[in-house]
Design a protein around this nucleic acid. Structure first.
Ligand code: FES
Ligand code: FES
Lengths: 158, 158
DNA sequence: ATAAATTTAGACTTTATTGTCTAAATCAAT
DNA sequence: ATTGATTTAGACAATAAAGTCTAAATTTAT
């Protein structure tokens, strides 16, 4: 697991970024996504269904089916994916695990955390997956480099 | 679970802050800590043992035993507790779950995250539990307010 | 010495997360 | 209509995290 998110959520974010990076060639097969990102196929399937219900992606069943973004890539932020999968709670809790995070009964790191939280909110809300994938030249080439040294035998399909 | 840490780690941080807030009346019984902070007794026991091995706290067995800080409260930072319990990895991973976080193959949020990470490091490294508990007037009175509305029947022993 | 209080140890249970498997439903192409 | 490719559904397994329980070891006080 990463810093903030569940595995499911990480996979969801990765998958949506992958879709954004390959537009407009849609829809894209689940198999392609799971191969490229090294995500267990059926596990990702569940996650994509969650994102489908939330409108982040659209699915097409049957032959030549697959997934595409549910709306313009400029209109999807990371936070939308997080909300769909991990829910609302993740930035509302106390860092130290006390039962509430609240200005009226602040824990010792509350004020410091509040500032960091704003930065993180910007990171997750203000930039769209369109912008994020564009920054990478729309190719997600970096994925190849990330996985290639781990598993050189298995073909990487980015 | 909170934003970053495992439950164990949260409990550990809370317990150490509690010890710091009650100095110099030491040692303090595990039972006192677990009652005050609503932490399962034997679960906290394991966590305190981990902190003991790491030198963050010192334990005294037998009657009139208990726990005290392993060194001056000014010399203990949150990050020391995190390292002892959750390990080193937690700020090194990629936020989006890609296999490495690295300037040479950055994920789309890497540069934004890097800035936030610095703030968080400051929060966890630069302020000691001495300073943190002092800010609260050394009493952790806030704990009482946090828990009182949840469980009004059970006695709170802060 | 004995008893009482406390930490330590470790087996065990419960719950949540992650991952796997098989089958059904749906759709496009022939 | 039939076939094949794909998503959907849901049962199941494996693993990890969180919590519970009982007993042993250690220390202080009597
Ligand atoms: S109360 Fe702890 S972070 Fe706000
Ligand atoms: S590579 Fe993703 S946060 Fe650094």
């Amino acid at each position: 697991m990463s810093v903030f998110f569940s595995r499911s959520c990480e996979y969801g974010i990765q998958a949506v970024l992958y879709l954004a990076s390959r537009e407009p060639e849609s829809p894209i097969h689940l198999r392609d996504i799971s191969n490229a990102l090294r995500i267990p196929h059926h596990f990702l399937s569940k996650i994509m269904q969650t994102l489908e219900r939330d409108g982040v992606v659209i699915s097409h069943k049957g032959a030549n089916g697959g997934f595409e973004l549910g709306r313009d890539a400029k209109e999807i932020s990371i936070i939308n994916i997080v909300r769909a999968i991990d829910g609302e709670a993740f930035l509302n809790g106390c860092v130290l695990g006390f039962p509430s995070c609240d200005d009226t009964a602040p824990c010792p790191v509350h004020t410091l955390w509040k500032k960091s939280k704003e930065n993180i909110s910007v990171m997750l809300e203000k930039s769209s997956v369109g912008e994020l994938s564009a920054e990478l030249g729309g190719k997600l080439e970096f994925i190849k480099s990330l996985y290639s040294h781990n598993n050189p035998t298995k073909e990487i399909n980015v």
